[in-house]
Design a protein around this nucleic acid. Structure first.
Lengths: 200, 200, 200, 200
DNA sequence: CATGAATGAGAATTCATTCAT
DNA sequence: GATGAATGAATTCTCATTCAT
């Protein structure tokens, strides 16, 4: 078993992910995908109902490990340091999700793809929920201030992660030199920027 | 002066911005733009070299006020509170940029548009630089901790802003209820999440 | 007025009718139509929403005169001879409808085309109704036996017409020599085949 | 003998006939046939040279009994009544041919299929010839008027049969209520519509 | 300046047919 | 014989761009 078909599916998903990353979503045509995968254009449709279906599958395969990893975060509450745990988790998410960001962008640009994706993955809990659960647990343990909203902090952290992961920094500015890595960002968000009381 | 041409250009830019926001970049065809603007398809090419040119102009017109506003931020160092100044600035940026985000997303999805845009706007200083300048000035005044990197903080703040501005929260999660507004996010980033020393 | 567009529309309709008659419905591709009309393939879609729309328009233009002609038949009741009137009407229908039969066949083969056509032309009265009205009027005048059902006779006449109009006689048989013309058929149907009482 | 192959062939022919009747010729793809027959797509080509070959075989199998039945008609001349014999024959033809009409329509729409079919069945005598022979025999017996052309009457009868058998009456009109059955039609054609001398 | 018909390259998708297993 | 993945030419339709009026 595992037949020829599985290898073809893998080639198609690989090609899709690579092309979206390298040439952008609008340029990732079915012809380009087929060519990059080394198969005929028609083959694509034997394995996926249409182009959107292929993209959803690609997103799914790529998201899987990232989501699985984040799912375990809440169990680490109370161990190590909060900063360390969050940095660790977000760094891995960043690494794993590097290939997903272009797809998320594509979904934001193309309503049709967004529809297909949400149709496929009904609202399951994802990283935001896991992060919020973790932060809540740390609050219970007294390791995080009680008056912050775990959900909002989780969203801010992931929004920042997303904003930083967006490929060309030129979108935000030419401050290339001081582009922060994930660890920098986590420290900044967690520790604040240290304003003096007189400045608040 | 201010002939009919200006009115036509305005109608085209308005239509472009509205369509990108409402139906997404991929659906914003030249025909749709012309129709929404109430002009013939060919008219577009009398005012802009091509579709990308129109989009670049739209981005420019929409970005102008936002960038101009941020330019003044450094002069406010030492006045009011740091949190207040940043919240104020970022909130305005968020408001003004609501129409720009779809274009930034489009540029990230379509390399061709990105090329046209960067060709038009050479690397001028933008919000990241202005924010960094402001933070640096506050550091000099002792109102912000000396050991944070102003550039990195600026980028984190803007990345967060960008991440939060991305239209459908479904991209990040179904944590809709606790979706933070800009003020929440600024407070979180500036004050940190209040970890206890033992947790660090 | 009458602009360039009208000429193009005519060329497209002409090409469509000609191709369906000459090479058959399945071979009448949009490319073939455009080529035969001497326009680009995209031009087709400026004038008709899609291929089915073009076909419906072609059917409409071709059916128009035929239907209009039949509409006047009931007013002739009582004039001339019944056989003459029917032969006259059916002969004209046959002539005019020679180009429509391939389309009617196409509609019977391709459900999608049928859907488009019925959507366009809601159930308006057509030749069957007009023929039935005429026969009923002649019955009132005592020129047609009272016990025949005008509706059924109308349908039989048109069904026969349709069956005879179907292009290749090979579908029904190789009796080419004695293929009846419309006048023959009308006489046969109207007068019967003259069976003797003993044979009934 | 009568190995698995025969069963497969039957399943393919059954599926073909069912699909053409239910979804139309254009929708009857090889994939749909294979699926309906419960065999793999490739299997089709183990039993028939190509799609047209399968269709020709389907037509042949379905036409066989109908043609065989009509072949015996001439031997009935002089027995029963003319109207009864013709009604009987045509009714059976209609029943048996219900599944063939869609194929005849397909042949009229798709020249390629027509070519394959005529190549397979060279011009053998068919129902038209048999009907003509029967009518000629009845003329000899004095049961049918001598001055009608048996060939023409045969063709008119079969053309009417074909016209009435065409699936959606919408092709001819919305005169649904008075849609005649075969017996009605035969009576009308045989007896005529009873015009008075003055009307002729 | 404005128009909108015309263009034609290219996109997604289908489908009859082949062939390695 | 049977399978079904793979093929690739062909089809319908889109869309940025041009140009005669």
């Amino acid at each position: 078993m595992a037949a020829r078909g599985d290898a073809t599916r893998d080639k198609l998903l690989d090609a899709t992910i690579r092309l979206v990353r390298e040439v952008g979503y609008t340029q990732t045509t079915t012809r380009a995908i087929a060519q990059a995968a080394g198969v005929a254009e028609g083959t694509l449709y034997r394995h996926y109902p249409d182009k959107a279906g292929l993209f959803v599958a690609a997103i799914g395969r790529q998201s899987g490990p990232a989501v699985a990893w984040a799912r375990d975060l809440p169990t680490r509450a109370g161990t190590g340091t909060v900063t360390g745990n969050l940095t660790d988790c977000l760094t891995r998410l960043a690494t794993l999700r590097a290939d997903i960001v272009p797809f998320e962008l594509a979904m934001l640009t193309d309503p049709e793809l967004a529809r297909a994706a949400t149709a496929a993955h009904a609202a399951e809990p994802g990283p935001p929920e896991f992060l919020a659960q973790y932060l809540h647990a740390e609050q219970q343990l007294g390791r995080v201030r009680a008056d912050v909203d775990p959900g909002k902090v989780a969203v801010v952290l992931l929004a920042t992660l997303f904003g930083l992961a967006v490929p060309p920094p030129q979108a935000i500015g030419a401050l290339g030199d001081s582009w922060p890595d994930i660890a920098d960002a986590v420290v900044i968000v967690i520790e604040g920027i240290g304003t003096t009381p007189s400045a608040n």
